[in-house]
Amino acid sequence: MAELMENNKIVVTVVGKDRKGIIAQVASKVAQLEGNVLDITQTILQGNFTMIMIVDLAESQLSFGKFKEEMELLGKEMGMVITCMHQDLFQFMHRI
């Protein structure tokens, strides 16, 4: 098996009631934390806003833990559920 390489790519998910400006708010927070957005997908499911964002933290001064803390705090302020998890977990689970 290939050598395990640790990277800084984070899967950020945002779930909650749809309203205006969610993407803008989340994206500006990510920018403020010096994260680089690599990919965004977003849908509305039965009025529920669901967004998945891939963020690269390679150039950020923040640790993963601090980034996660800040994002979760933003989620609370916005009344949305924001989760942050390392991308490798998804890669490892779903791709051989």
Partner: peptide, 19 residues
């Protein structure tokens, strides 16, 4: 790197952990 994991797969993993 482009996203190579589908939304369904991401949701599946998060659901496994949270629910």
């Amino acid at each position: 790197m482009p996203i190579s994991i589908t939304n369904e797969e991401i949701k599946e993993t998060i659901n496994m952990i949270q629910a």
